[in-house]
């Protein structure tokens, strides 16, 4: 029991722990995976190594209603000028709430990988009909109903922004489109559509430079 033993101990530790550079306290024996695993679990992020994140990919696939994927020859989002609304509603989702039977010919056709839930899809359909009947308030209310069911669904926010823009509320249209963008990561065509809406909203508010910026983002996204 003396300096020699302590020195020996130190030497052994130095040899054994290949982790001298990690800093912090130097534990003697209890270094092992189980402990650090637990630490990681309670650590920041709470995403231990064992739980791989499966984030945006899951939402990735379900675009559409109004934003076609680009396959099937459908035109881009920008092809939905606001003064042209009824023509959109004549094709697209009003045709049928059924999923995955997109005819491919109409620009608003549903894609085979449509991910929207039944009720949200049904409400978007209702909103389309109300909009084409000129009942913008009703369309608004139906879309808000859809938003309460799927608050993060950017397609709902996209449509809501569109309707608000038709009602002349450009400021809210821009905000709603930006909110849609916050939830649209990994969905480039939808992002492009949302940026285009932001651009239109900014134009209506007399912000030409801002509109141009948004258009650039739309081009980058699409």
């Amino acid at each position: 029991m003396g300096i020699r033993q302590v020195a020996l101990l130190g030497a052994v530790i130095a040899v054994l722990s290949g982790c001298a550079g990690s800093g912090g306290a130097i534990p003697v024996v209890d270094s092992g995976r189980p402990v650090s695993n637990e630490d990681m679990r309670t650590g920041a992020g709470r995403v231990g190594t064992s739980t791989p994140q499966a984030p945006a990919t899951q939402q990735d696939s379900g675009v559409v209603v109004m934003v076609p994927d680009g396959q099937g020859g459908s035109s881009a989002v920008q092809s939905y000028p606001l003064d042209n609304q009824p023509s959109i509603s004549s094709g697209g989702i009003t045709s049928s709430p059924a999923v995955g039977s997109g005819p491919g010919s109409s620009s608003g056709a549903l894609q085979a990988d449509e991910q929207l839930d039944g009720p949200v899809l049904a409400l978007l359909t209702t909103a389309r009909q109300q909009e084409s009947n000129g009942d913008l308030n009703g369309a608004n209310a139906s879309l808000e109903r859809a938003m309460r069911i799927a608050p993060r669904e950017p397609q709902v926010l996209y449509r809501l922004a569109q309707v608000r823009l038709s009602q002349g509320d450009a400021a809210q249209a821009e905000q709603l489109a930006r909110r849609g963008l916050a939830y649209a990561s990994g969905r480039p065509s939808l992002q492009a559509g949302l940026w285009e809406l932001v651009a239109q909203a900014r134009e209506q508010q007399g912000d030409a430079a801002g509109a141009e910026q948004a258009r650039q983002r739309a081009r980058v996204s699409s």
């Binding site: 982790c19 990690s22 650090s36 920041a44 992020g45 231990g48």
Partner: peptide
Amino acid sequence: VTAWADPLTGLGSDPSCEGSVEIP
């Protein structure tokens, strides 16, 4: 993005290091 770091020092780390956590 997430990265591995040592919560005690705030410096970058590696998943193999004890006490390191994945932090956004």
